[in-house]
């Protein structure tokens, strides 16, 4: 069977940016984007794109990428297209900003309804900003679909998907009827790099840009206005930062001195 897949991706502040560049504005309860570090697709969402591409490689199909926010940089949100996805839908409007998992899942679920045709919806296991891991399950609940979270492998056939789901001590194999929503974990494997050909093809694809009204939503239902959970405070934990460096004439001697130090401290 050829498979219609929708992949939800989120543009986030690069989580690989050096921790020292990370700043919070406590008054506005917002993170200050680090200067000179462009945003990226949230890494687990890239794993989800990779999962979609592997299914498409194996049996053909169409991949529609869906993203929500404002100031979505085209070179960022088009990356899945340059990896091999086919279409891009952007929910781009100020009204979508500042939502919690509920408001974000609602926007994405309504957009998925409008896209209409799908066998599989894929999301990353959690976004690198709020580390919540709720939106995938939330979309499934809103659309009345079965869901499997934390996938490390997905095979599709016969109207069902066979999913390896990561557990604390290994994995479990789960069969789920389609259409279904699956969230993807990093154990699936790293996302492929865009190819030159892919980058050229992506340039020619114009994203569809939808506003709340296009998906049948009022601004009051989404973004900050649609929250169920209020953010009371955002702050950076204090680092005590008093590491005692153990030295030596050579690295080997430093190693010996470290062992002696840990012994003296009764840590060995």
């Amino acid at each position: 069977m050829t498979v219609n897949i929708i992949v939800c991706v989120k543009q986030v502040i690069d989580p690989e940016a050096p921790p020292s560049s990370f700043k919070v504005d406590e008054a506005s309860k917002k993170v200050v984007p680090p200067a000179g570090v462009p945003p990226v697709i949230s890494p687990f969402d890239e794993n989800a794109v990779e999962a979609a591409l592997r299914i498409k490689d194996a049996q053909g199909g169409k991949i529609t990428v869906l993203s929500m926010g404002v100031n979505l940089l085209r070179e960022v949100v088009k990356k899945p297209l340059s990896m091999g996805a086919d279409e891009l839908v952007l929910l781009e409007d100020e009204a979508f900003v500042g939502g919690d998992s509920w408001a974000n899942a609602l926007g994405l679920a309504m957009a998925i309804k409008k896209i209409g045709q799908y066998d599989l919806i894929l999301c990353g296991r959690q976004a690198a900003d709020w580390d919540d891991g709720q939106v995938g399950s939330g979309i499934a609940e809103m659309l009345g679909l079965p869901s499997v979270t934390l996938a490390r492998k997905i095979d599709v056939g016969d109207g069902k998907a066979v999913v390896e789901r990561v557990t604390a001590d290994g994995y479990e194999v789960i069969e789920v009827s389609l259409p279904a929503l699956i969230t993807v974990s990093n154990e699936l494997g790293e996302a492929r790099y865009p190819t030159i050909k892919g980058i050229m093809a992506a340039k020619k694809i114009e994203p569809a840009v939808w506003k709340p009204a296009d998906i049948g939503l009022e601004p009051a239902q989404i973004g900050a206005a649609g929250r169920k959970i209020s953010l009371e405070r955002l702050y950076q934990p204090v680092h005590e930062g008093k590491c005692e460096l153990i030295e030596g004439e050579s690295p080997e001697e430093a190693g010996v001195n470290l062992a002696l130090k840990l012994r003296e401290q009764k840590l060995l």
């Binding site: 460096l245 190693g255 060995l268």
Partner: peptide, 25 residues
């Protein structure tokens, strides 16, 4: 920033000496 004690150095040189000393201790 998180550690209480540390050694700045190549682990390939530091660790074997550390391990030997631990064995001895």
């Amino acid at each position: 920033r998180e550690a209480r004690f540390g050694v700045v150095g190549d682990w390939k040189k530091v660790l074997p000496a550390f391990t030997e000393k631990v064995r001895e201790l």
